[in-house]
Structure formats: structure tokens, C-alpha cells
Amino acid sequence: MPYFTTSAEWLEQSSLLLKARPTTTKITSKYSFLAPSSTKIAKQRARLAAKAPTISSSSTHDPASLKATLTLKTYDPESGTCLKYQTDKAAEVGRLVGSLGKLGRHMAALPEDLSASVEQGSGTNTPAVESGVSREGKGGLVEVKGVPAVGAGGGAKKKKKKGKK
């Protein structure tokens, strides 16, 4: 599964997935702080040398330098959906953990933080409640909080996306 290019996109898709499958989905954040292996360094040096034989290999980019990254992964084993985002910017850490908190609210089945996303909430919830009510008639759901049907829509959307890729 490819990585999302923006964290906002990752957050949106993850929250849709979580709404659809709140019990099975888990979010893993991996903070990896690794020195690249010697073979990797050798390969990279070789590539650099091949690219620009005139420039010395100790140019701007040092392949041996440490690389610290934060990878976020939302995975649902039941549907096999895996959504990933990776960054190496320290400035993003706070925001990303904040979005983990937002997703945590979905997991706990708490209502969305209204102050955080008023616009998004009103946009997605309106159709959700309608379809939820229609479901109530057919399936005999006792209580519909708006969240479940958003999930259903999210699942469909997500699957479509998967197909495209």
C-alpha cells in the first residue's frame, strides 16, 4: 500500500476507516531512528558516483547520516485496509499526535471534537443520519448516532480508491 502524500489525506481516510470498523482497526506509529546499513550506504554512494562522476561523493547529501522518521499506519485486519503516512519533519510530530487523538475519539466512540472540525462534521453528518434512518427501518437498529452510516459510506469510498490504485 502506498503512502499518502499529505497527512490531512491520511487523517481523512483513516477516520473514515475507523468509523466503518472501529473495533478491529488499529493505528501503529513507528518512530524509527536508524543508521542505514553499510550495504545501503555503498549502494547510494555508487549511485551518486554514477550520476555525477565529476563531483566528489562527499557533496551536500551524506548517505551515511542518520535518518529519523515517523510512520503512521492505520490497519484493519478484517478488510485488509492499510493506510500509511510517513514524515521526517519534527514540526509535524505534534500535529500528527493530535490527529491520533482525534482518531482515538472515533475508536472510543466519542462524538467528534466540535471545536476541531466544525465544517467537516456538518458536511459528512447530514447524509449519514438520513441513510442511518433508512437502515433503521430495514435492519431494526435501536439507536443511530450518525456515526455508523458515515462509516458505511466511508467504506465504499475507500474501496473505490483502492481499485483505482
Partner: peptide, 24 residues
């Protein structure tokens, strides 16, 4: 559930402090 917001606020602080090797 009632501690989630508090927890994640602190979580963010700890992560920001601990993940210091990332690009500034």
C-alpha cells in the same frame, strides 16, 4: 474515554520531546 483529550495532549508533548532526531 473521559481522559482521552488529556492523554493525547501529554502524548504529543512526550513524543515531540522524544523524537528529537527528526529534521528541524
Amino acid at each position: 474515554p473521559d481522559a482521552i483529550d488529556r492523554f493525547f495532549a501529554r502524548y504529543a508533548e512526550v513524543c515531540k520531546a522524544g523524537m528529537s532526531a527528526m529534521k528541524k
